[in-house]
Amino acid sequence: MPRIADGSRTAPLPRIAGEASASASSVAVDDETMALRVVPGRRAEAGRASGPVGASGGTSTSAAGTVTPGGRAARRKAAKRRGGRRTTAVPPVERDPQRPLTRVEARRQARLRKPGPATLASRAVGELFITTGVLMLLFVTYQLWWTNVRAHAQAGSATHRLQDDWASGRRSPGVFEPGQGFAILHIPKLDVVAPIAEGISNKRVLDKGMVGHYGEAPLKTAMPQDKTGNFGLAAHRNTHGEPFRYINRLTPGDAVVVETQDTYFVYEVSSSLPVTSPSNISVLDPVPPGSGFTRPGRYLTLTTCTPEFTSKYRLIVWGKMVQERPRGKGKPDALIE
């Protein structure tokens, strides 16, 4: 370093202010902290740093002490936000219910109330399911309840009409028209009393709660008064009066009585066939195979559907005549309680 001669020795030249400040700064720096610190000799510089920065960038401090990042454009936007827009949420103004809606408000509310396509589709599907369920319930009610009510009324009326005709002395011909009643069937064990009509038509006979006689070819069977033959009968097991619903409960020895205008014909159950095909018409033969009968006689065959509530198979019950009693002698023992 150059020195100035003062006679005996030379004095060092003073350092420039920057070098002095740098030296002082190197002495005062505390390397053990990362917080803010004041460097001796740089107070003015620190003050200048906290002031506003030029348009090129940096931060600025407002009069209120709020630090605004960015340059002049950012400060202008911040000032505009502070001055032109509220910083707190404004509660919505409730509309006066007495004030009529404007056209815009009315259209907006109408759009909000109008359901969308998905809502309409879901409603349509729901209504379809409800309608289908109601129809199915009505159909089941009709089949299981109303058909029985109507058939019982029709069968009861036919029974009373037969009894009135017999009491008045009006004799019926030996040959009966399809659908015409000519006898009354009694099954005491099952508490069944039902009129017997000619034919096995659903519409004219069976659906009216009556028991049908196989009297037409190719399924023509004998009548009770015939000296030999098989008297074949059919009836519903479920719905439409269901007179044969519980014939599966009949056991050998149970009585079945056919009441005509002049005679009581008493049959005794001998055997049954729980399941057979609907096409097995041999069960109506004069000597039915599988019945246990081995020679011609006076037999009775009851036929109905099985299992219950289906018509897939047929249930057969056979009986043989054990008594022929004129009506003038009174009821047979099977009908006396």
Rank of each mutant, 00 (worst) to 15 (best):
S23Y: 09
E19G: 04
S8M: 12
G58K: 00
R42Q: 04
T303D: 03
R314A: 06
S50P: 02
I130R: 12
T68A: 03
R170Q: 05
I336C: 04
G84F: 06
G7S: 13
T66V: 14
V149G: 01
I16C: 13
T147P: 08
I247W: 04
G232N: 07
G133V: 08
H240K: 14
P274N: 10
Q143G: 08
V140R: 09
A35L: 12
V287P: 04
D262V: 03
L233W: 03
A235W: 11
E94A: 15
L233E: 05
L284V: 01
L206V: 06
I247Q: 05
A64F: 07
I184K: 02
R9T: 09
K331C: 06
L144M: 10
G212I: 07
Q261C: 00
Y267I: 06
P2A: 14
F182S: 01
S168I: 01
S282V: 09
R237W: 01
G199R: 05
T221W: 04
D31W: 03
D254L: 01
A183I: 08
W318I: 02
L273Y: 01
I16F: 10
L36D: 11
E19H: 06
G126R: 10
A64M: 03
R42M: 12
P173R: 02
G241F: 12
A28K: 02
F139P: 00
D285Q: 11
S25P: 00
G319S: 04
I187F: 08
H236L: 12
I281G: 08
T68H: 14
A55C: 05
